[in-house]
């Protein structure tokens, strides 16, 4: 049984111009100990589909799916209070902007301990000890002192480490990382990716890596889902995706990498769809 199984997920937003379909019939599944990457450009619905799993979308969103099961339990049909017990504990998420996703008014220690208090009900000294342990695990020097720091006193990379510490605080079964390194420098990106992959292997977590960076996909994923305009274009294991992309959209994406440039011009998506073929019709799975 897969850890997370989604079938035919549709997310629509109510706008003044009628319903807007952000995710259009996406199906995917993640097994335990597996790293799935979801790739796509902005507006491809990659973040929205994962926010739907977390139940973090605003009320204007209408989420429907034939199936959305975590560990065999249907997420869509359970009560809100039941769902809150799973979200943040068994499914955890890391967001793109580390500095913006921490509360500037509280110390990082308080914010990590809040997770432990809410989900595990640990006592004060146990929480403190566990928080120190977590900061050590994510590689922050002087963890005991750093617990009293506020987010603005830390660098972007360190804030992202704190976010990771919060996410793995309850030993989640599934970790969703939404563009975890987009706001960071390349050298820091490398450190954070290495840390995520190490923690994923150590804890045997399933991981979903949402990204638009093909390099990040190549360095982390086992399997890849390519999304475009809310639809799934292609699903493949990481090696065959890079060696032999099947959908036209993936081919266009690969060709647009400056690394693969041949000659003076970079091919663009438009070059691949010059003949006016409907891009969605080119989907393969």
């Amino acid at each position: 049984m897969a850890l997370l199984e989604i079938e035919n997920l549709v997310v629509e937003f109510q706008t003044s111009a009628g319903m807007f379909r952000a995710v259009d019939g996406v199906s995917l599944k993640v097994d335990e100990r597996e790293v799935l990457a979801i790739v796509g450009e902005s507006g491809s619905g990659k973040s929205v589909s994962m926010l739907a799993v977390m139940g973090l979308l605003p009320w204007t969103a209408k989420v429907t799916a034939d199936k959305m099961a975590f560990n065999g339990r249907d997420l869509l049909r359970m009560s809100d209070s039941e769902r809150r017990k799973i979200v943040g504990k068994d499914i955890a998420m890391i967001f793109q902007e580390p500095v913006a996703s921490l509360n500037p008014c509280y110390t990082v220690g308080f914010q990590i301990e809040e997770v432990l208090r809410f989900h595990l009900g640990l006592g004060r000294s146990q929480r403190r000890a566990r928080a120190i342990e977590l900061l050590t695990a994510v590689g922050i020097p002087n963890p005991a002192e750093r617990l009293n720091s506020f987010p603005h006193q830390m660098s972007g990379g360190q804030c992202q480490r704190v976010m990771i510490a919060m996410a793995i605080a309850c030993n989640p079964k599934l970790l969703i990382a939404d563009e975890p390194t987009t706001a960071l420098d390349v050298t820091i990106q490398k450190q954070i990716l290495d840390l995520l992959v190490k923690l994923q292997a150590e804890h045997g977590m399933g991981m979903i890596m949402i990204t638009h960076n093909m390099g990040v996909v190549a360095e982390t994923a086992d399997r890849v889902v390519v999304q475009y305009k809310g639809r799934k274009m292609e699903e493949a294991d990481v090696l065959s995706l890079f060696e032999n992309p099947r959908s036209n959209y993936t081919k266009a994406l690969m060709a647009a990498l400056p690394d693969n440039a041949t000659g003076d011009r970079l091919p663009t998506i438009a070059d691949y769809f010059k003949d006016g073929t409907e891009i969605a019709g080119a989907a393969v799975s």
Binding site: V186, Q189, K190, A218, L239, F242
Partner: peptide, 21 residues
């Protein structure tokens, strides 16, 4: 360091990573 940290998106380095894993 900068070159080493840049993620590589070619099949050869993916193969190497999967083998390490």
């Amino acid at each position: 360091t900068l070159f080493a940290a840049t993620p590589r998106a070619d099949p050869a380095s993916i193969k190497a990573r999967l083998a390490r894993k």
